[in-house]
């Protein structure tokens, strides 16, 4: 136990501990699913908010921007109340399942993707508006055109969302319950091992988590750069 925690952590990673592998894979599954669902919902909504003018739009934009800072524990509590046995969706039996974790992380990621894409699409619309209107494009028809043309910037928005999902601990802890082998993910495992005094294991998990984030971001960055170089 005197062993250097860094060395111990390194050993865990190199040995590819099966428990660790399970935790890593669940973390990735939950956070990537949440980011994907939030992107599918948030990108079109952000674009629509950028293009359409309606009463209360300013409040909607401000509200969405504020929700980027929604505390994970609060989101977790709200989803917990919805999904708990006594709650309105209690009969679904989703509490303490990975599905519940995906739901709560989607809730956290959605405002980030929608708010950032709203700004990105609004700037692009400013540049494209006259040309697209001249070509006879309606605002609705412009949404897919703009989303596709802003794809490189929007990837960054989605990555920011993924980063938020994979880094948060409060929400998944409340709705997932950190059940070993079922709902334990990287962040909840780190919190648990730290409180138990297993600092080496906690540190090892932390390093793996950071490397995973780097790997995901690097992969997407390289794919994006390659496409950008070809498409300008």
């Amino acid at each position: 136990m005197d062993q250097n925690p860094f060395a111990q952590a390194f050993q865990l990673i190199v040995q590819m501990d099966p428990a660790l592998a399970g935790i890593v894979s669940l973390s990735l599954k939950v956070s990537l699913s949440a980011a994907a669902i939030a992107a599918v919902l948030g990108l079109p909504l952000g674009a629509a908010l950028a293009l359409y003018r309606f009463r209360g739009r300013g409040a909607a934009v401000a509200g969405l921007n504020a929700l980027m800072g929604l505390p994970p524990v609060v989101a977790g509590l709200m989803v917990y109340l919805l999904l708990s046995r006594a709650g309105p969706l209690g009969s679904w039996g989703l509490l303490f399942t990975p599905t519940a974790m995906v739901i709560v992380q989607t809730l956290l990621v959605f405002p980030i993707i929608a708010a950032l894409s709203r700004q990105i699409i609004e700037d692009l619309w400013e540049e494209y508006r006259e040309q697209l209107q001249s070509l006879g494009s309606s605002r609705l028809r412009a949404i897919p055109t703009l989303l596709w043309d802003a794809r490189f910037s929007l990837i960054t928005a989605v990555l920011a969302g993924f980063g938020r999902a994979s880094a948060e601990v409060g929400a998944v802890l409340i709705v997932g319950g950190n059940i070993d082998g079922v709902t334990r993910v990287m962040t909840t495992a780190i919190a648990l091992e730290t409180s138990r005094g297993n600092l080496a294991l906690a540190l090892g998990l932390g390093l793996v988590l950071m490397m995973l984030g780097l790997l995901v971001n690097l992969t997407i960055y390289l794919i994006g750069e390659q496409a950008r170089r070809r498409r300008g």
């Binding site: 006259e130 001249s134 006879g136 596709w148 498409r231 300008g232």
Partner: peptide, 20 residues
């Protein structure tokens, strides 16, 4: 209005071209 628009075209000082 859209039928009228589709029978005209405009070229701008700085062309706006899509990323494709």
């Amino acid at each position: 209005a859209t039928a009228i628009r589709h029978r005209q075209a405009m070229v701008f000082q700085r062309p706006v071209l899509l990323r494709r």
